[in-house]
Design a binder for these strands. Structure first.
Lengths: 251, 251
DNA sequence: CGACTACCCCGTACAGCGTACCCAGTATGG
DNA sequence: CCATACTGGGTACGCTGTACGGGGTAGTCG
């Protein structure tokens, strides 16, 4: 339930790691590990046990080495996170899409969603000025292709992609958070709402906040039904894409 | 640069705190503090020194008491965060707006932005299933008023408000992160880009990722210019509102 | 009025974190 | 052959949230 920084490390060091620019040593014992092994172990832990469980000691245990050994491969935890980020960005599908910009942006959104669902910890790390590694660059390139040549300026292209990505981030995060709270507490949204309804009633909730009560109840019931969250996701995405379409129509 | 959980505490205890339902003791010495004082001190620290500096010991120091004393007023840090959240939600302006739904939603967006800028740590705490305190309820009620009676279902009303709030959250977070990175590192976006350009060139960046290079450069230059970020914020918000307008036009 | 007891404050302690520092062991270049 | 550059990792420091328990205080009851 915790979150972390990114870009907190020394960016130059992160870049060196990302592009594999470490000068290879010739003297001394051969390293028993590689940066990739360290990053892969860290990603595995974050995937399975969550960001909160990701500690240097935990990663070291996973690899069967002492905690301090990791610092031979990575300058610190911040840089490790940077490299983890770029590593999973590299998994981004980049499926080719036949169709107009809208179909392509939809594909971008869905593939971002897949990525977040496969690595939920990404939701709690993403930050501005991310590490410009090969994974992120390839992803960004693919995303920009969706809106290239449709009449947007360069800055607008970036803004459009950021808008879609921002929406996906927020939507998936809400969904993942909700599921996580249910799993960790064993209390569904409906139970939770029902449990606190009397308390909120006593306070005079429905009188003071009629809209909030009405809409809140409706949303609670909807979500608790066998309603697939696919629908809610698509609704928001359609609004975002409609907004971009409106901009294009004005030109 | 760090982030935290919310809703991690016992929700029932948080609710009691939020609505001031603690049974008042009659016996024993009078408490030297109040929950409000504790929360206010915590908010002050988070505002000035950031979330990372917010520790129980730090709050206790601020109030001139021992660290464990806080646990007389608040069950733990998680619940303290819940109450801090609701406390600042209570500051939400709720300015009355004459005009259509669009003007009202714009006001919602701007006031949310103000709130985030006044309490940037909010950006790193917000989560699903937030504490249903008086502050949040009033804010939610105000936000829903913007889209009441314009032909949306209850669930769509919630989705529309969430869409706008999600956009603001993402946009402000990006801006705040960017500013923070510049302040903490003393490196502007342009400097950073320029410093790494040779490295990226050497890798064959521009050849492999032509769009990313072109657009990235354009965005970097734009942001570094005396370009006010107001413009970028308004652009994205306009797209979101256009998206909602398109939905209404279909009805 | 004394005794009881609920309540306040908080010192100590523990497990966990990131990581600075340092030393032992090893393989290679000169 | 040996100086040197490197790897592995033990120990330790300062930080975190908070469980536990003890000492002092004030209101209530026999």
């Amino acid at each position: 339930m915790n979150s972390e920084y990114s870009g907190a490390g020394d960016p130059a060091k992160s870049l060196e790691l990302l592009w594999g620019l470490q000068s290879k040593p010739t003297r001394g014992p051969k390293p028993g590990l590689t940066v990739d092994q360290v990053v892969a172990a860290a990603v595995r832990i974050a995937d399975v046990e969550g960001l909160a469980a990701l500690s240097m000691r935990r990663v070291a245990d996973e690899l069967g080495v002492g905690a301090m050994t990791l610092y031979r491969y990575v300058p610190g935890k911040a840089e490790l996170l940077d490299v983890m980020l770029d590593s999973v960005y590299g998994e981004f599908a980049r499926r080719p899409v036949d169709g107009d910009w809208r179909a392509k942006l939809e594909a971008v959104a869905l593939q971002n969603r897949e990525l977040y669902l496969r690595h939920p910890w990404l939701l709690y790390v993403a930050s501005s000025r991310p590490p410009l590694g090969p994974g992120l660059m390839a992803k960004y390139e693919y995303e920009l292709e969706a809106v290239e040549g449709i009449g947007l300026t360069d800055v607008e292209m970036d803004a459009a992609v950021a808008l879609v990505n921002g929406y996906v981030h927020g939507a998936v995060r809400s969904a993942v958070d909700a599921k996580r709270v249910i799993q960790s507490s064993g209390i569904t949204d409906k139970d939770w709402w029902l449990a606190h309804a009397p308390l909120l009633d006593k306070i005079g909730d429905a009188q003071k906040f009629p809209l909030a009560s009405r809409v809140g109840t409706a949303v609670g019931e909807e979500f608790d039904a066998a309603y697939d969250s696919e629908h809610g996701f698509a609704f928001g995405l359609a609004r975002v894409l409609d907004g971009i379409a409106a901009l294009l129509a004005d030109r």
